[in-house]
């Protein structure tokens, strides 16, 4: 059996474990909430993650379509890019999949040369997704800075200022202005 088929059988179990890995990057009680609350609107982090991981798994075992991977990966990383994560913490969950996949295999499977070869191929695919995650993370951070810069601009209402319409507050009371 090809490793893809092998894993396809255990897909749900792997996705569940993978989901837990992502959830466990949050403080314990938050992680509990993310796992327990199934409503995608009350729990957008959980809902988005669940949807994204399922899609990623499908791609990993299937086409590895770049655009599709992007569409599943982006929402997850997008969330993590604004939260309290370093880039490595934001993306590390992808590489955990390697371990999760190996846990699903039997000891004997590792004796098969073909499986080993396929496993390293799968690892490459996972690495690829990981690299894409970095790109998305960077893109999101850039977007955040861009938003910040725009806000800064809005704040000084450049148009008004050019027209001399805004006066700074006087140093002291208005009577001295």
């Amino acid at each position: 059996m090809r490793i893809e088929e092998l894993l396809a059988q255990k897909k749900t179990a792997i996705i569940d474990k993978w989901f837990d890995v992502v959830a466990d990057t949050y403080p314990a009680d938050t992680a509990g909430f993310i796992k327990r609350q199934k409503d995608p609107f009350s729990n957008p982090v959980g809902g988005t993650t669940q949807k994204g991981l399922t899609g990623l798994m499908d791609e990993l075992l299937g086409e590895m379509n770049h655009d599709k991977i992007d569409s599943f990966l982006d929402p997850i990383i997008r969330i993590r890019a604004v939260q309290d994560f370093t880039p490595s913490k934001a993306t590390s969950f992808i590489f955990s999949l390697k371990k999760l996949v190996r846990n699903q295999l039997n000891k004997s499977d590792f004796n098969e040369y073909r499986i080993l070869a396929e496993l390293s191929e799968l690892d490459l695919k996972i690495d690829l997704i990981g690299l894409m995650a970095f790109d998305i993370y960077m893109k999101c951070r850039e977007k955040i800075y861009q938003i910040k810069a725009n806000e800064e601009k809005n704040r000084t209402f450049s148009a008004f200022e050019r027209a001399g319409l805004i006066k700074e507050l006087p140093d002291s009371g208005p009577e001295l202005a």
């Binding site: 995608p40 609107f41 009350s42 957008p44 982090v45 809902g47 988005t48 969330i79 604004v82 939260q83 955040i144 938003i147 910040k148 806000e151 800064e152 704040r155």
Partner: peptide, 19 residues
């Protein structure tokens, strides 16, 4: 709604945006 707390605002707005 300041500029410097953009991350906070984006996090806080996530449930709204998600819907």
């Amino acid at each position: 709604n300041a500029g410097e707390d953009t991350e906070l605002r984006l996090c806080g707005g996530l449930p709204r945006a998600n819907a």
